[in-house]
Design a protein around this nucleic acid. Sequence first.
DNA 1: GCCGTGCTATGAACGGCGTTCATTTTGCTT
DNA 2: AAGCAAAATGAACGCCGTTCATAGCACGGC
Lengths: 207, 207
Amino acid sequence: MVADRHAELRKRLIEAAEAAIAANGLGALKARDLAKAAGCALGAIYNVFADMDELIFAVNARTLARLDAALAEAAAEPAGKLTPPSAIAQLQRLALIYLRFAAANRHAWTALFEHRMTSEKPAPDWTLTRPVELFTHIEGPLEIVLPEPDARTRNLVARTLFSAIHGIVLLGLEQRPVAAPPDELEAQISLFVASLLRGMMRPDAFD
Amino acid sequence: MVADRHAELRKRLIEAAEAAIAANGLGALKARDLAKAAGCALGAIYNVFADMDELIFAVNARTLARLDAALAEAAAEPAGKLTPPSAIAQLQRLALIYLRFAAANRHAWTALFEHRMTSEKPAPDWTLTRPVELFTHIEGPLEIVLPEPDARTRNLVARTLFSAIHGIVLLGLEQRPVAAPPDELEAQISLFVASLLRGMMRPDAFD
DNA sequence: GCCGTGCTATGAACGGCGTTCATTTTGCTT
DNA sequence: AAGCAAAATGAACGCCGTTCATAGCACGGC
């Protein structure tokens, strides 16, 4: 069957690309090397993918799936009955998982953003819907901590919280002087999440 | 004088590169176009800069200087006598300036990070020392809000705070579904800075 | 079992990139 | 005015992603 060969080559290409990125980063992914690694001709890549961008998006989809799995594992906790303190603890755990995933999958994780910045082509649909799914993990515990505002506000806070953690992880793992050093990152993230949520729960005096 | 011609060409190249980046982003900066814009031969670029990276670093240095100037303007407030509430307000202002600078200088600001990610060459010294200078603006007010911990801890918090704001701005300006939409960014950033610092000032009950 | 036919796989070739370097031009010294 | 070192030049190089004319293969009708 022809579709089988197609599907199989597609799989080999994605896996080879994934391995190349994991090994040396997105910048080291070259069409010619990839063809060699997947055991096909250079041009065969373009029978399966429109261009390299499309292939990278496929790799990124898998990375996101792995991230989702990692986050879901932490959420295995009894989601239903969380007290505010335990909800904060849960959000701390999620943030730490994000940090550890990024650290353990440095190149693949970096490719998630590096790529989008370089490429000006419109991202496929799933890049809009998929990451939003990941927010389920955040919004659950967040509802316990911030029951008062409406869902829309809470969603906004969830997104901003994610962005903030993302920034801390991004700069932290790059070992830039503007960020906390790696061995302090976990503590800083825990402190940050706890302080932020406590500050949100109890708006007080000055303002 | 020979050094004059050299210096003048250098200036023209940096300005042309700055304009090209501001117009269409780092990805649109091409050696051939640059030479044309600066009115010199293609090879002349390499009499002044070792490679394009070095030129981009020069542009980034100017961007950082402009950012520093923008931040310094906000710090023109009487730095000496700040109460905790006004210190928080000052930090909010700094964060908003960062957001507005990024929004108003989108491409130049993006180039600051985009470049570093792509290039694997070691960054020049000033990329280590310069950004740290910018932290002066944060650490002042932060000292009012968090007088208790030692300077080292406070420095760590300052860096984490910056990283978090950076993440919110980064994802927010990209209009990604994981981030807050642009028209909500200012409010979210203000809320975050205030909540975080209040949460840090008054560690309480659970933990 | 064989042949025609349509589709897929192929890798040389293309255009564009940053960078190099033999050559030309320049500007200063004698 | 002549000589010469140093700087400016742009054609050429190597590498990149992508294309496309061609080769080869699988498959349905005889």
